[in-house]
């Protein structure tokens, strides 16, 4: 078929379309993330030290890392739904990479023999809560990418997973009363890692076009 015939067919099929904007995508993901955090806090309440107005520095630091990680990777994922030569997501990757500081310091502490005992049951509880809190954001970003035209589907899926996982970890960090780097690594950072894998290897296939 010659291009002219193809153009005739495409023009015939064409109808008004509602163009995607990055702002819409970011707003939808933001609402999903905020809603998820509110639901988790409504279900299990704020951490006692936060509720008392005296949050521990480690909790503030980790919540900050997860929050910024969610923002940076969500920003990158919505950008990747609308392709353009000249795009770069290096900054977002560095930002999310900062979350890796938590398990890295935890490992150093462990190697130095400074580790405190941690409960596997508590870590699993946080992990399951966090994964649950990630799902809505993951779905919103996934649908956005599916509707869009990601030309880097693996990277887009990865960022969607990182963002959703960071939202889940952020929510759990605000409600979980356990302390310690080992618990943060096993129960909270693991949420980000699990969702990143789901995005990179699961979602990426679904959004390929």
């Amino acid at each position: 078929m010659k291009s002219e015939h193809l153009i005739d067919r495409l023009v015939e099929e064409h109808d008004a379309t509602s163009p995607m904007t990055m702002a819409q995508g970011r707003l939808a993901a933001g609402v999903a993330a905020l809603g998820s955090v509110i639901v988790i806090l409504w279900l299990s309440g704020l951490r006692l030290d936060i509720a008392a107005g005296r949050p521990s520095p480690l909790v503030l630091l980790s919540a900050g890392l997860f929050g910024l990680g969610a923002l940076a990777s969500g920003w990158a994922a919505t950008r990747l739904a609308q392709p353009a030569v000249g795009g770069s997501q290096g900054g977002a990757l560095w930002m999310v990479g900062a979350i890796g500081l938590l398990p890295a310091i935890s490992l150093i502490e462990y190697l130095l023999g400074n580790h405190a005992p941690t409960s596997t049951g508590a870590a699993l509880r946080c992990l399951s809560f966090g994964l649950g809190a990630s799902i809505v954001t993951f779905a919103v970003l996934g649908l956005r990418l599916r509707r869009g035209a990601p030309v880097l589907p693996e990277r887009a899926g990865l960022f969607a997973g990182l963002s959703a996982g960071s939202v889940g970890a952020f929510a759990v960090t605000l409600e979980c009363n356990y302390d310690g780097l080992a618990h943060l690594t096993l129960g909270h950072v693991a949420i980000v890692a699990a969702m990143a894998l789901a995005g990179r290897y699961g979602l990426a296939r679904w959004i390929r076009w």
Partner: peptide, 16 residues
Amino acid sequence: LIGLHVKRASYDARRP
């Protein structure tokens, strides 16, 4: 061209 057609909603006319 088919890709452009299928994904035309992903173009934001405020961008190049």
